[in-house]
C-alpha cells in the first residue's frame, strides 16, 4: 500500500471524529457562554450539556497530546485500497467542512415559520392540564397582560366562550405566522414549545384578526400584540376567538424565543 494511501486513511479514520467533536464542543461551550443554548435545547440540559462539552474538549486536546503512531511510523496492514482510503479522506474532509461552516460559521438561529407551517399550530406541545393550572393561577391575580402565548392558548383550549374574555386585555409577544386558512386577514402571534430540543418544537399561537397585516409586517417578524378577544370575524379561520388588536408593536426577538 502506498504511503499516500495510508496517510489518507489514517487522517480520515483517525481524526474525523476528533474534528467533528472539536466543532460541536466548541459550538456548545460558546452557545452556553453567550446564553444561546436555548436556541437548540431545553434549559434542563444546559448544565449537563456544558459539562460534557468541557469533558469532550479535554479529550479532544488530549488526542493531540497522546498521539498514536503516524502513518509513516506504523506498518500498513489493512485490506482497503489506497483509492478507498483517499475517498474516505475526501468524504471525511467534506463532512468536516460542512460541519465547520454550518455549526461554527453560520450564526445561531431560531426556528422559523417554515417549520411552523409543517407542524399545524396548536395541535400539540402543551401539557394542557399543567399549563391550564399555571394560567389559572395567573388569571387569579387579575393581571391578564402578564399571560404569555402559552397561557392564553391553554385558557382558550379550556373554553372559547367570548363572554369569558370580553373584559380581558391580552398583551402577547410572538412571531408572525400566517393563518393557513385565512392568510390575508389572520395571523398567529406564535411561539414554539420545546420539550427536549428544537427538533420536537411544536408551534402554538393566538389568532390575531388584522386584515391587510402583510402591508406592515412580514412573516417571522417578532411583534407584541395588545388587544381584546372577540369572536373571530374571519369566516375561514378555524379559530373561534381572535385578538382584535389595538396596537401591534415590532419588537426584537426575545433572547429565549421558545417556551417550555
Amino acid at each position: 500500500m502506498s504511503r499516500k494511501g495510508t496517510l489518507a486513511g489514517y487522517l480520515a479514520e483517525r481524526w474525523r471524529g476528533i474534528g467533528l467533536s472539536l466543532v460541536i464542543v466548541v459550538a456548545t461551550i460558546w452557545l452556553g457562554a453567550t446564553g444561546q443554548l436555548g436556541l437548540y435545547i431545553h434549559p434542563r440540559y444546559f448544565i449537563f450539556t456544558t459539562v460534557m462539552a468541557v469533558v469532550g474538549l479535554v479529550f479532544v486536546v488530549a488526542s493531540f497530546v497522546f498521539r498514536t503512531p503516524s502513518a509513516g511510523e506504523s506498518e500498513p496492514s489493512g485490506r482497503r485500497s489506497a483509492g478507498r482510503r483517499t475517498w474516505a479522506l475526501g468524504g471525511s474532509a467534506l463532512l468536516l467542512a460542512i460541519a465547520t461552516v454550518t455549526v461554527l460559521a453560520l450564526p445561531p438561529a431560531t426556528l422559523t415559520s417554515a417549520t411552523a407551517t409543517q407542524r399545524e399550530v396548536n395541535s400539540g406541545g402543551l401539557d394542557s392540564e399543567a399549563a391550564a393550572e399555571e394560567a389559572a393561577a395567573l388569571v387569579g391575580t387579575g393581571d391578564y397582560e402578564r399571560l404569555s402565548v402559552k397561557e392564553w392558548v391553554s385558557l382558550l383550549a379550556q373554553s372559547e366562550d367570548p363572554a369569558l374574555y370580553a373584559d380581558k386585555t391580552a398583551s402577547i409577544t410572538g412571531f408572525v405566522l400566517p393563518d393557513a386558512a385565512d392568510p390575508d386577514n389572520v395571523f398567529y402571534a406564535a411561539r414554539f414549545v420545546v420539550t427536549c430540543c428544537a427538533v420536537d418544537a411544536q408551534p402554538i399561537g393566538v389568532a390575531v384578526y388584522q386584515p391587510g397585516w402583510q402591508a406592515s409586517y412580514d412573516t417571522d417578524d417578532w411583534v407584541q400584540v395588545t388587544g381584546t378577544f372577540v369572536s373571530n370575524p374571519s369566516a375561514r379561520s378555524a379559530d373561534t376567538l381572535a385578538v382584535l388588536p389595538t396596537t401591534i408593536e415590532p419588537v426584537d426577538q426575545p433572547s429565549d424565543p421558545y417556551v417550555y
Binding site: S21, I24, V25, A27, T28, L31, L37, L39, Y40, I41, Y45, F48, T49, V51, M52, A53, G56, T102, V103, L106, A109, T110, L111, T112, A114, T115, C196, C197, A198, V199
Partner: peptide, 15 residues
C-alpha cells in the same frame, strides 16, 4: 431550519 434542527439533535445527543 434544517441546520437548526440538525444542530439541536447533535447538541442534545453529543453529551
Amino acid at each position: 431550519d434544517t441546520i437548526t434542527l440538525a444542530l439541536s439533535v447533535i447538541i442534545e445527543s453529543a453529551p
